[in-house]
Design a protein around this nucleic acid. Structure first.
Lengths: 111, 111
DNA sequence: ATGTTACTTAGTCATATGGCTAAGCATGAC
DNA sequence: GTCATGCTTAGCCATATGACTAAGTAACAT
């Protein structure tokens, strides 16, 4: 059991690098082999592998090796969980703004 | 002009630290002075200040000094912009899953 | 069997990050 | 004026990060 729930620290850390975001966007369009992910970046393969392992440890992707090529797949659940956290914070922050606006509006009305 | 748009690298980097997420959540509830943010963390003040400057450079918060105390305010626009990026990726990833599911369903139907 | 392809592993290096202490500098209280 | 308060600045330290090269290993292809 226990699909050990999303670790926001690992996820945000993974998302904080532009190279990784680019790779992730590409993977999001459909499964990709490592070498094809590496090509547009111009980075050395070991470097790309490290980026991938960061993404995999954050559970943003899953990889599977067939023969000598490794395919990278997106894991939408993780992205969804993260989006949920953001949405939650957003609600709180904006509720707060609403209260502030209401307060200001009230001040103006009474002036 | 140009409110120089949100830098996702800075934002995700800022969000990747649990201490900063905690501080951010607190600030999201309403403006807080630095010392009050520091207290529950048990961290030294300079450390807290550094966390705050990371959050401020990511435009997740704004701070304003009055007398000798500095107040920290949330900046919901930045969180909103980030949530938008996530929502966008999510759509793409899930659209992809849908297509895959449709494909599988089709295979099964024809079997 | 031999070579090529596609990763892997190991190890190095420069810079960034997150924490600290020790002083410093305004502001508000007495 | 003097002192406590609330940040600020400066500088140090350990570890993490992102990049590399060089050398390995496991599949295919011929």
């Amino acid at each position: 059991m226990a699909k050990h729930d999303p670790d926001l620290s690992l996820i945000f850390q993974a998302l904080s690098d532009p190279t990784r975001r680019t790779m992730l966007a590409r993977i999001g369009l459909g499964a990709v082999p490592v070498s094809e992910l590496a090509r547009p970046t111009g980075l050395a393969l070991p470097t790309v592998m490290r980026h991938l392992s960061v993404l995999e440890e954050a559970a943003l992707i899953r990889t599977e090796k067939t023969g000598r090529t490794r395919l990278c797949h997106a894991r939408p659940e993780t992205l969804a969980a993260t989006a949920d956290w953001m949405a939650e914070q957003r609600l709180i922050w904006e509720a707060r703004s609403d209260r502030l606006e209401a307060y200001v509006a009230n001040l103006i009305k009474d002036a």
